[in-house]
């Protein structure tokens, strides 16, 4: 199976939030009690029970108002920071493109709940069940079980406007490029094409991405590759540094003739 993706065309979104409701109902996520939000986008942010939100942005430029509605969820990175950060292999990027959390999706419970994945994710996606005694990390799973059945994700199915388009990532990229090339209104960038090494979910928009909650000039290198650049030195440091220390110790020991190892741990003299 080709790696799947979703193209989110912000110009088409009407903020109907059917995708949010579909996500909650399909995934049996409990709705929660919220209060008035001036921006109309309660609950406003992703959490353990809300895997996707549509955030509203009002952009006012010389009296002109623009109002944009932007669905947010896990980006399903090509090389996920969450996966690389997890020292128990609790996240995995599947061949379908979904990045899933194994304890809940596959029932493979290795997670220790350290939340380093949350620190690692550049999009602030993984969320924690803070109120549970035995909490899990939660996030959009790209409706993995639906993908396996050849179905679209629940949110994509629910979207009335064609804002969300599901398909092979490569084909979506081509379509996204074609859309932004053929229409001068688009901002000339496909968010997710290169960001952090690329993501399965791709965005196109008619306003700069930084105005709709995305960081723009971010690394094009994947986050795992950063850590790996450092981690790969570990064995060298271990043995190299160990050898240096051993050598030094031997060398200085001969110099400090009087040095007596015993003395170091000799009992403290009695009164």
């Amino acid at each position: 199976m080709m790696s799947k993706g979703v193209l989110v065309d912000v110009t088409r979104c009407i903020g109907c939030r059917s995708c949010m409701v579909a996500c909650k109902t399909w995934n049996d996520l409990p709705p929660k009690k919220t209060t008035f939000s001036n921006t109309w986008d309660s609950p406003g942010k992703i959490d353990a029970d809300t895997w996707t939100v549509v955030n509203y942005y009002i952009i006012e430029e010389d009296g002109q108002v623009k109002w944009r509605f932007v669905k947010k969820q896990c980006m399903h990175c090509n090389e996920p920071a969450c996966e690389s950060a997890c020292f128990t292999h609790s996240f995995v990027k599947t061949k379908e493109g979904a990045v899933i959390y194994k304890p809940t999706v596959l029932n493979q419970d290795y997670c220790v709940g350290c939340r380093y994945c949350m620190i690692a994710c550049p999009f602030g996606v993984p969320a924690f069940q803070w109120e549970k005694a035995f909490p899990y990390v939660q996030k959009c799973k790209f409706c993995y079980e639906r993908l396996q059945e050849g179905m679209k994700p629940a949110c994509v199915t629910a979207c009335p406007t064609g804002t969300l388009k599901f398909g092979d990532r490569e084909e979506l990229l081509a379509e996204a490029r074609e859309r932004i090339d053929s229409n001068p209104n688009y901002y000339k960038k496909i968010y997710g094409e290169k960001e952090y090494g690329g993501t399965s979910w791709l965005y196109i928009s008619d306003v700069p991405f930084e105005k709709i909650g995305f960081k723009e000039d971010v690394s094009q290198k994947s986050i795992p590759s950063y850590t790996w650049d450092v981690l790969k030195w570990t064995p060298y440091i271990f043995f190299g540094w160990g050898a240096v220390l051993t050598a030094l110790r031997a060398y200085t020991k001969r110099r400090a003739e009087v040095h007596n190892e015993e003395e170091l741990y000799a009992p403290v003299e009695k009164d």
Partner: peptide, 26 residues
């Protein structure tokens, strides 16, 4: 009207998924 609610809200205000999205009169 608002998308999250339907009319007098009899149905939608009894639907927790929708009151979550649009909880209060303003």
């Amino acid at each position: 009207r608002l998308i999250e609610h339907y009319q007098s809200g009899a149905v939608t205000r009894n639907c927790p998924n929708l009151t979550e999205l649009m909880p209060e009169m303003f």
